[in-house]
Every structure is written in structure tokens, then in C-alpha cells.
Design a protein around this nucleic acid. Structure first.
Lengths: 343, 343
DNA sequence: ATGAAAGCGCTAACAC
DNA sequence: GTGTTAGCGCTTTCAT
């Protein structure tokens, strides 16, 4: 079958015997139109299955497109999925549609995605910045009125709104909780790369908590992993040390999954655990997993609300919103530390 | 600061002292251009920060936009997140960008989203159909060459490609596994609404497995839930029956989370479980959770591959691709059934 | 209440 | 190698 051309405004106009502009008026409820004309137009639209070309409209009107560009590291990571849903819910009321892409935490892919989004004249740009990415090329866009929001991590080379979790305080609280249960050798498995903002912040919180407890920072207790498999390996590595930790802190949700899986596999019930970011079934584990929960819904909601207020003309200084984390005590930190060997 | 207009092709042309078409040629590597001109153009482009307006280009070229529209029930559901990632990976090689939206399993929202996508002239439309949605309005679009693919469930009123899991066989295998371990009273907690395709298929598989074992179908052992909380309630309800089940089958990932959480909360280690769709940490539970795993990556990949082949002119009959599920035995079905009370 | 013409930013089809 | 003209589908502006 021949691929029949999609009907245009002109087709509808011809069908009814009016001008294109009249059809446009009816459809956009712009200017006046007689009841009879309106009826006929609407009928023809339905008959032909006409759908206005939004791109053509946008071209002519000149304003930004009714889309919002969102760059996240991984569409399949539930944390970012939850953030995305909250964003969609909030901007959806304004009729904005989500244009999404995964950067895989690669600066080049992130740049390619943002460029694509800019070429589409998105009305808002939201980015989870990758390590090594520079955002100074966005200065002119922001100056021209494009709201740009950084999510989860601050961006580099551009002063604009950022929404982050209370990484440092959260990690501190989690580690302090382990300390309170008597642990003195606490391992830390962070995200990769090590320059990642969240990794550094959470490590800083870990170090502060150790310091407050008078514990020295032992580099050999710090490991890194970017996925579940790597976290399992890192866990096994730490537990295989000559002087192994009695407790472990997981730096993010993926690390938590690998870490907990490895402890289960090796049947190490004697290791205390706290994880940063909540995971499903945390409460069904034995013992139930104590976590420093993030609030992805609030991160997404705050990001969207901030961007919308910018869109509405808010020209105040760039702000950084820190969304609080919350320690959820479930039991996995309560394995008592073994009695000290020395003295 | 004044929102300065974004530079256009004409601006670049003026800056260099050439015609707009020449700039266009350089940028698209269309026709020839002297090395000197090319250089000057590129320099001006960089200087002005020019980015071609993709919408304007598309209007003129007339073809579909380089976007793919994807309607899923919930951006935050990890199953659909994994599907989306696989789609993005596959179509990304063709330079297509993802336009996404959540339908919340509502036919009206689904329709609003698809209409938006059509108005944007997406080159591919992928939909997880909601119960009650009719898709006959897409007939003309598909006839005009727009690839339409249904994901996870078949659509209604339109004959086109669909990608689904082997729901019936998978559920059958899971339930048969419970039967093999001696269970004769097996509860089923399915998704809502009850007319949902996957719910019905999986229930059918459950019934077949019972039948094969010579077990009668007991309506009181079938419950429903759409979220984790509801699944927990349903679980408690089934276990509170006068003649309660000794084993439970969870109809999807969300149900599985609620069901397992409830069993943990009420400390019911005596209940055997198999879940449809894998969940994180399944192997770390005690006992580890046996599941009928779906393959979201393959679903996404197959959907994208099918759509791309349509885009390349494949006009063969609509196909339904069934992606196999896989029973992953981990232990939660191995709680022996109690000895029969009677006879 | 409706229409004609011009133009948004870009490229196809011809010039030269 | 480069420029000119026309036109994609729509809306703005100005008529009538």
C-alpha cells in the first residue's frame, strides 16, 4: 500500500472549503469562528484523522518546544527511574513531554545527548553530570533563559540550580550507627570512578564518623565497585584481609546489592552492614538491612519545581537544594562487634 | 539580561559572508565546499554557538522525526526500566532519541501520550497497552508506514508486531515446580485489574499446572493486588483462610516484593514461594527466592530490532515474538508440604 | 467572521 | 564551488 501523506491543515481547509487560518483558529481556539464553521472543521479533522504537526507549529511560534530533556546515567537503575517519574509527574501538569537518554556516566555521551536536546529546543534541561564533563557550553543557553538543573551531583563550569542528597551527613550517620554498635574496623565500598561526587561525599562522611569516634582511617578498608559483580568481588576482598573489617558500609544501591549477595553466598552472618540508598526487600533479609535512604521522589519533584519557577521568570541566584536522607534502622548493624583482641 | 535570540543558519551565513545554503552544505556534508569556506563556516558556528534547529530541518525534509515514542505504565518499575534501556541501546545506533511517558495503566493517559507522540511525528511508536485502550486509531498511521510495536501485552484493534513473555508457560512451570514439591494448596496473587493480559495468561498457566496434577481450582486461593502494600494484604488474607495454602505464587515483581515482605514480617518460613519476574536480592533471602525470570533486555532488544526492520521496509505480516522465561530454582519452593491430614 | 500574504529555520531543486 | 528561489506546515499580521 502506498504510504499516504499525512493530512495537513491545508488538506482540512480544502475539505471544508475554508482557509487554513480558519482551521487553525478553530483548533487553537484562537480568534472567533461561527458555530457552523467550527462544526464542519472538527468533523473534517476527525474524518481525515488530522493531527497538527507540533514541530511546524513550534518553528513558527519560535518559543521553546514543549519537551524537557533529561540525561541520566542509566534508565534501568531504579533510583533514577524514581527520579524520572517524579519529574514527569510534576512537569506533566504543564504539558511537557520527557525526552530521555542514558549517558552511561560517559562525558562524551552526555554531551552528545545534551546537544541533541538543545537542537530540539527543549524548554528545560536536566542532567546527572558525568565525571569529566564540562558544562560551560551551556552558559549562553542559560543566559538566554533556558532552565538547566543538575541532579544528584553538581555540574562543572556552570553556575545553576542543583539538587543533591545529603550525602555526607547521610554516610556519616550510617557509619556512626555502626560505630555505636561497637565496630572499630569498618569497610567502605564506594562507587566508581573515585572522583565521582557522591563517592567522595559519602567517603568524607565515613571519614568524619571514624574521626569522631577516634578511629584511624585505614586505606586498606576502602574498596570500589561500579556494579553488583564488582561489589561482590570487593566484598570478598575486604573480608579476606589479614585484619578484616567487622562491618561494611555500601556506597550506593548497586554496591549494596552485590555486597549483600556476597555475604549471603559466603554465609557471613557475622558482618554488620549499612547501605546508602534503600533497596527492595531490605526488610525481608535476615537480618533486615539498615540503610541510609535517599528520597528520589523529592529530588525529582524539587528539580522540576525549580525548573518550572525559572521558566516562569525566576531570576534569583542559583540554588543548591539538599534533600535529606534518613537512617532506617532495620537490624543489620546490630551484630555486635567481637571483643577486642588486645590489651 | 536580555534573552538573546538563538543564532540561525542565516546568522552564520551573514557572519561569514556566504549564503545560508553554503553553511547548510558544510554542516550536513552535503555538496562540495572549498576548504577555506568550510573552515570559516565552522569557525563562525563555534563562535556563535550555533546549533541547527532540528525541528526546522525535519519540517523541510518531511520525513519522520528522529525520535521514538515509548509509552510504559511506570518509569519507576525496574522491569520497564530494563526494557527501556535495551530499546535505547538498540535504536541509539540509528541516532534515534527516546520520547517517554508513563500511562499509569490508564487508557486515557495512554491515548494522550500517543497523540502527543504522533503530533511530533515520531519514527517509531512503542506501547505497553493499558486495559481498555483501543488502538484502531493507529491503523492509518501504520498503513502509512509508521512502525507500531506492542510491548509486554498485545494491543486491541490493530494488527501489528507484539513482544511478550511466555507468561502462560512460565507460570505453569513455576506452579508445577511447587506441585513437584508436594504442595496441593497453592495460592495465586495476580496483578490488577483482573482483565490485564499478563494476569490472565499467568493465571491460565497456574490453572493448567493444577489440572495436570489433578488438583481442583479453588477460587478462594486466588487474590489480586497492584502494589506492594496490596500484595502484603492479600498474602495475609490467604494465610488467614480456614484451609490456607501451603505455597504461594506471585504474579509479578511488585506482588513478589509485597508477598515476601509480608512472609518475613509474620515470620512464616513454612510457606513455599515462587515468583513471576526476578527481583533484586532474590538469592540473598532465606530461603533464596525461586523465580520465573523474564528477560526484559531481550524484550526491548527484540522490539527495537523489529521496529527498525519495519522502518527499513519490511512489510511482512505482523508477528508476535514470545520471549522465553526461565525458572531459576533457588530454594523457596523446597519447603516440604505438610503430610496430608485426611485418609 | 474569515482570508491573503508573509515568514519561522531550514533544505531540495535548480541555477550559474 | 556557490547562490537563488521556493516551499515544508504552521501561525502572525493585516486586510476585508
Amino acid at each position: 500500500m502506498a504510504a499516504s501523506r499525512r493530512p495537513t491543515l491545508a488538506d482540512v481547509a480544502r475539505e471544508v472549503g475554508v482557509s487554513a487560518k480558519t482551521v487553525s483558529r478553530v483548533l487553537n481556539e484562537d480568534g472567533p469562528a461561527s458555530a457552523r464553521t467550527r462544526e464542519q472543521v472538527l468533523a473534517a479533522v476527525a474524518r481525515l484523522g488530522f493531527q497538527p504537526n507540533l514541530m511546524a507549529r513550534n518553528i513558527r511560534v519560535g518559543g521553546p518546544d514543549t519537551t524537557i530533556g533529561l540525561v541520566i546515567p542509566d534508565l534501568a537503575n531504579p533510583f533514577f527511574g524514581a527520579v524520572a517519574r517524579a519529574i514527569e509527574d510534576t512537569v506533566g501538569e504543564r504539558g511537557l513531554t520527557l525526552l530521555m537518554g542514558s549517558s552511561a556516566d560517559d562525558a562524551g555521551r552526555e554531551r552528545a545527548l545534551t546537544d541533541k536536546f538543545l537542537a530540539r529546543r527543549v524548554s528545560i534541561l536536566m542532567i546527572v553530570p558525568s565525571v569529566g564533563a564540562d558544562h560551560s557550553h551551556l552558559k549562553s543557553h542559560r543566559a538566554a533563559g533556558l532552565p538547566v538543573v543538575f541532579l544528584d551531583r553538581p555540574g562543572v563550569g556552570l553556575s545553576t540550580d542543583s539538587i543533591v542528597s545529603s550525602n555526607r551527613a547521610g554516610a556519616h550517620d550510617g557509619v556512626a550507627h555502626l560505630v555505636a554498635h561497637g565496630h572499630r574496623r569498618i569497610g567502605f565500598i564506594g562507587d566508581l570512578p573515585v572522583k565521582l561526587y557522591t563517592r567522595r561525599e559519602r567517603l568524607a562522611g565515613y571519614r568524619t564518623a571514624l574521626q569522631e569516634a577516634g578511629l584511624s582511617y585505614d586505606r586498606s578498608l576502602v574498596a570500589n565497585a561500579h556494579d553488583q559483580q564488582g561489589a561482590a568481588t570487593a566484598t570478598a576482598g575486604l573480608l579476606g584481609l589479614a585484619d578484616p573489617p567487622t562491618a561494611l558500609f555500601a556506597g550506593n544501591n548497586m554496591v549494596a546489592l552485590g555486597l549483600v549477595a556476597e555475604l549471603a553466598r559466603s554465609n557471613r552472618k557475622d558482618i554488620a552492614v549499612v547501605a546508602f540508598d534503600d533497596v527492595p526487600l531490605a526488610e525481608a533479609l535476615e537480618p533486615a538491612l539498615t540503610v541510609v535512604a535517599q528520597d528520589p521522589e523529592e529530588i525529582g519533584r524539587a528539580a522540576a519545581a525549580t525548573a518550572l519557577s525559572r521558566l516562569d521568570g525566576d531570576r534569583s541566584r542559583a540554588r543548591t537544594i539538599t534533600v535529606p536522607t534518613r537512617l532506617i534502622v532495620r537490624g543489620s548493624a546490630e551484630r555486635p562487634a567481637p571483643a577486642l583482641q588486645e590489651a
